[in-house]
């Protein structure tokens, strides 16, 4: 038995090492500093190849804050032409400014953000209306909460669904990997649930009738129904009291600390409110 295990492990190790080599070679093209670690690198080894700043936190590339977001969640983060804009984006840019770093923003599917940051090879942090919870906190390190949110139930304006009781049993959709998805799975046991990778697809499905309700974050939902999606309405706000946090790699708690300080400063000197006022006029 023992022999079999070790043999299997050996085979697995060799194949994994081969894949890891490939992955590293593939990733290495972009950043010269991040790719020098060995094939069987642990997260510790990988961060060793990154630069450590005088402030004590690590960066993949000196002087740069590499941020990843899922830019289809207006007004939090969204694409305007080829630019990524939104509340989260202004916030992280301000944080970057206060840390003296150049901020670069990349776009990626929402359900892969946590994994990307946990991997720790591509990005320093992610800000993308990510609700703080313990499951995610096992994989990554959260900053202090920077925004309070709830979930909202969005239906077509002329939907026959009158109240929340009528919701359990109709087909519903949410974004894959979101807190809305978790809420649906726990609370709407009678409903058929369909996950969507992007909110625009979720709303397209709502319009076609494939789903009859979409459950996602309140600020985004409210923005949607008052702008592009005027044929939809917010049926109800689900008081979840969830909070957004910025995520960084678990081995890089110092970066979260530095960001927390910047966030506190911004709240103290009114910069935070100024940015918020720009994006949440209603609130």
């Amino acid at each position: 038995m023992k022999h079999n295990w070790s043999k299997a492990l050996l085979v697995a190790c060799v194949s994994v090492a081969a894949i890891a080599c490939l992955a590293l070679t593939a990733c290495g093209g972009g950043s010269s500093k991040a790719s020098s670690s060995s094939a069987a690198s642990s997260s510790a080894a990988s961060s060793a190849s990154a630069t450590t700043t005088s402030a004590g936190y690590k960066l993949l590339e000196g002087g740069k804050l590499k941020v990843v977001t899922s830019a289809e969640y207006s007004p939090m983060e969204f694409m305007e032409g080829s630019d990524i804009k939104g509340f989260d984006i202004d916030l992280i840019k301000e944080i970057g400014k206060r840390l003296g770093l150049d901020v670069t923003i990349s776009n990626q599917a929402f359900d892969s953000l946590v994994t990307s940051i946990a991997g720790g090879k591509q990005f320093d942090c992610s800000i993308s209306a990510i609700t703080i919870n313990d499951e995610r906190a096992e994989q990554v390190k959260f900053t202090n909460p920077y925004y309070d949110s709830n979930l909202a139930v969005v239906t077509l304006a002329n939907s026959p669904i009158a109240n929340m009781d009528a919701l359990n049993g109709v087909p519903v959709g949410a974004q894959s990997g979101s807190s809305g998805e978790e809420w649906v799975k726990e609370n709407l046991k009678q409903s058929t649930y369909t996950p969507f990778q992007e909110t625009p697809d979720l709303l397209a499905a709502l319009r076609t009738g494939a789903v009859q309700a979409a459950i996602y974050d309140e600020p985004v939902a409210k923005n949607h129904v008052s702008t592009e999606y005027t044929d939809c309405k917010v049926l109800n706000v689900i008081p979840t009291g969830e909070q957004y946090g910025i995520i960084v790699n678990k081995d890089n708690a110092a970066l979260a600390d530095a960001m927390n300080k910047a966030l506190a400063d911004m709240k103290a000197d009114g910069t935070y409110d100024k940015i918020a006022a720009q994006w949440f006029s209603a609130k």
Binding site: D111, A118, E135, R136, Q139, G177, E181, P195, Q197
Partner: peptide
């Protein structure tokens, strides 16, 4: 498979 990936944050 993605539904598990998004739930666990693991590939």
């Amino acid at each position: 498979s993605r539904s598990i990936v998004s739930l666990t944050g693991n590939m």
